[in-house]
Design a protein around this nucleic acid. Structure first.
Lengths: 204, 204
DNA sequence: GTGTGCATGTAAGGAGTTACATGATTGC
DNA sequence: GCAATCATGTAACTCCTTACATGCACAC
C-alpha cells in the first residue's frame, strides 16, 4: 500500500483553511474510496457535491460511494496534505473548492501504478437465486432466467444510452478511460444477456 | 420481501433443542445470507462448518459470507422456526445437525420465486484504477490492462478447473444449477479477458 | 505424537448506509 | 412564490470482517 505521508515535504503549508499546525501531516490509511475522491478532484470536480455527482454517473457501478462518505474523507485527505481546500462561496452559500497538492498527485499516481488489489467483490441476489433454482418448477426457473436477462439488458441499454454519451464527451477532450469503462460494462452485460437467453432456450 | 413467519403454524415445536417457549416464533428479517444458509441446508449441508465449506466452493463468488456470520444466523433461523436443530455429536466433539422445517422450505421457495432483488453490488479496484488511468503513461496503462486481463484469465481458469468439476458431480445427481452458474462465471470472465486483450492491442 | 481438518462460537472494530438537519440559489 | 438543485455536514445504525478462544478426531 502506498503511504502518501512519506512523500510530504516537512514544512509544507496545507492551504488557507488548513489545521493549526501545518508542519506535520498525520499518516492516514488510504482506501480505494480515498483514491476515488483524489481521482475525481484530478478530473476537475471541485466540491464534495460535484464529486458525488460525478461518481453517480460513472464509478458508482464498480465502486459505490454515498454522500455521507465524501465529506469526512475530504477532511481526512486534506489533513493528510493530499488535498488543498479553499473557500469558494456562491453568494451567501458556502462552498469549498478542493485541488490536488503535489503529494496528492503523487499518491494518486503511485496507486494507479500499484499492482495490489483489494479482492473483487460481487454480490447479486439474482445469481444467488439461480444457484438454488433446482428447487423450483421448470416454469419458475425460466421466469427467473428471463428476469435476470431483462435486468442485464436494461443495464447494457442504460450504460450505452446514458453513461456512454457523457463519457464520450470527455473522450473528445482527451480523457479516454471513462468511455473505455462504459463500453466494457455495456459489452459485458450484453454478453451476459445473450448467455442467459441461450440458457433459457436450452431449458425449454 | 417474503415474511416467513406468516407461514409458521401456531403451536409448532421447533426441535429437540428449541427455545423454552416453542409456541410463538419471533418474526426475523430474512436477508440474502439467510436464504443462502437455508439453501445450503436444502442441498444437504448439515453443520455450520459444512455450510461454510460448501459456500467457499460455490456461492462465495457472488455472495461472500464469513464463518462468523453463519452461527448467529443459524440461531436466528432456528428461533424463527425455519430450521430444526438436533444434537449430532462425533464422539466427544459436539456437532449440530440442521434440517429445513416445512416453514423453512416454504420461505426458501417463496424467496426463489420472488422478483425483488437487492441492488447488485460490484466493487473492483482494478476497474476503478482503469477509470482514472488517463493520468498514466501509455506503458503503465498497458501494464494495468495486462494485469486485469491476467486476473480475469485466472478466475476463468480456476472456475473451469476447480469449481466446475465439483458442480458437474452434483449435476450427475440431478442438481444442475450450480454447474450452470460455474459456466456463466467462467464464460463471462473469459469474455472479459478477450475484451481486455483487444483493448490492450488497440492501445499499442 | 503431531499436524491438519472438523467443529462451534464470541468480541471488537471497521466500513458504509440511511436518515436527519439546514439553508441558499436558480429557473420557471 | 415554489420546486429543483446546489451545498455541507452529523448521527445512528447495520452489516460484515478479522481476530480471538477452544477443543476433539483422525491420519500419518
Amino acid at each position: 500500500m502506498s503511504d502518501a505521508s512519506e512523500q510530504i515535504p516537512g514544512g509544507r503549508a496545507t492551504g488557507s483553511t488548513g489545521p493549526v499546525s501545518p508542519t506535520r501531516c498525520p499518516a492516514v490509511k488510504l482506501r480505494p474510496a480515498s483514491y476515488l475522491i483524489l481521482g475525481m478532484v484530478g478530473l476537475g470536480a471541485r466540491s464534495g457535491y460535484a464529486i458525488k455527482a460525478a461518481a453517480d454517473q460513472s464509478t458508482q457501478f464498480f465502486w459505490p460511494m454515498s454522500l455521507a462518505q465524501v465529506y469526512p474523507e475530504l477532511a481526512r485527505l486534506q489533513s493528510a496534505g493530499l488535498l488543498r481546500r479553499e473557500e469558494d462561496p456562491r453568494g451567501a452559500r458556502e462552498r469549498h473548492s478542493y485541488a490536488l497538492t503535489d503529494a496528492g498527485e503523487q499518491a494518486l499516481a503511485d496507486w494507479l501504478r500499484s499492482a495490489q488489489n483489494e479482492p473483487t467483490q460481487f454480490r447479486d441476489e439474482g445469481v444467488l437465486r439461480l444457484f438454488f433454482a433446482d428447487a423450483l418448477q421448470p416454469a419458475d426457473q425460466i421466469a427467473l432466467l428471463r428476469r435476470m436477462r431483462e435486468r442485464a439488458a436494461a443495464v447494457a441499454a442504460i450504460t450505452r444510452e446514458e453513461i456512454l454519451p457523457s463519457a464520450e464527451a470527455l473522450e473528445q477532450a482527451g480523457t479516454r478511460c471513462p468511455a473505455l469503462i462504459a463500453r466494457l460494462r455495456a459489452d459485458t452485460h450484453a454478453y451476459v444477456e445473450r448467455w442467459l437467453a441461450r440458457a433459457e432456450t436450452e431449458l425449454r
